Amino acid sequence: MASIKVAVLIGSLRKESFNRRLAYAVERLAPAELSFEHVRIDDLPLYNQEFDHDYPPVCQQLKQQIKAADALLFVTPEYNRSIPGVLKNAVDVASRPYGSNAFAGKPGAVIGTSVGTTGSAMAQQHLRNVLAYLDVVVLPQPEVFFKFSDGLIDEQGHISVESTQKFLQRFVDRYVAWLHKQL
């Protein structure tokens, strides 16, 4: 199979985001056939139905990036037991107006980490519900959510704990095999 282009949406805007580190770790563990493009979501206006008649250029660009991807990877923290607003807004922008959902039919995965003991489990479940409605076929297992601790994954995605590296490698291997079946 040719290269698989994966659009990565990270639900944290923080410069030292733990979830950006997780995304980089996944990329480091992935085979060369996967290419990852981080989709910018920090410059989007809040979705408003009035856009539907004259979509802002930055919103059109987001939709084009999603459409150009073969697959999706959502990497999300958990804010107040749900999806960060910036990520939900990006999903709303890329899926509207009705009938022009950029996500439809694409395979995706949802992973994440947070400093709380349940990682990002609740946020991921909420995001999975939204993605199901938007016709994104989400990898069911393995689920990847864990408590982030200092030094676990550095800014370049190097993983310091062997069991975490093995766990993430199992996810990556499963994701790649699953993408081959989906595409």
Rank of each mutant, 00 (worst) to 15 (best):
M1E: 07
A2S: 15
K5C: 01
V6F: 03
V6I: 13
V6K: 01
A7D: 04
V8F: 05
V8G: 04
V8K: 03
V8S: 05
I10G: 01
S12L: 07
L13N: 12
R14N: 10
R14V: 10
E16M: 10
S17A: 08
F18Q: 11
N19I: 08
R20F: 04
L22F: 04
A23C: 03
A23F: 06
A23N: 01
R28E: 05
R28C: 01
R28Q: 12
L29A: 03
L29T: 09
A30P: 01
A30R: 04
A30G: 04
P31S: 13
A32P: 08
A32G: 05
E33L: 04
E33P: 00
E33T: 08
S35V: 08
F36L: 01
H38L: 03
H38E: 09
H38V: 09
V39Y: 02
D42Q: 11
P45W: 12
N48R: 07
Q49N: 11
Q49G: 11
E50R: 07
E50Y: 07
F51M: 13
F51E: 03
D54G: 03
Y55M: 14
P57D: 05
P57M: 01
V58S: 06
C59V: 15
C59K: 00
Q61V: 08
Q61K: 14
L62V: 01
K63P: 00
Q64C: 02
Q65E: 15
I66Y: 01
I66G: 02
K67T: 14
K67V: 14
D70Y: 09
A71S: 11
L72P: 01
L72Y: 00
F74Q: 06
T76N: 03
P77H: 13
P77K: 09
R81G: 03
S82P: 04
I83P: 00
P84A: 10
P84T: 10
V86R: 00
L87T: 06
K88S: 14
N89T: 11
N89Q: 13
A90T: 01
D92V: 12
V93K: 00
P97M: 10
Y98D: 06
A102G: 09
A102D: 07
A102W: 06
F103K: 05
G108P: 07
A109T: 11
A109Y: 08
A109M: 05
V110S: 06
I111V: 15
G112R: 09
G112S: 11
T117P: 00
T118Q: 05
A121C: 08
Q124L: 12
Q125D: 14
H126Y: 15
L127W: 00
N129L: 14
V130I: 15
L131E: 04
L134T: 01
D135K: 15
V136L: 02
V136I: 09
V137D: 11
V138S: 10
V138Q: 06
L139N: 02
L139R: 03
P142E: 08
P142S: 10
E143I: 14
F145K: 06
F148N: 12
S149C: 04
G151D: 04
L152P: 02
D154H: 10
E155Q: 13
E155G: 08
H158P: 00
H158A: 12
I159Q: 07
I159H: 07
S160Y: 12
V161W: 08
E162R: 13
T164P: 01
T164F: 10
Q165W: 06
K166M: 07
R170M: 09
F171V: 11
V172Q: 08
Y175G: 02
Y175F: 15
W178I: 03
L179G: 03
L179E: 02
K181Q: 14
L183S: 06
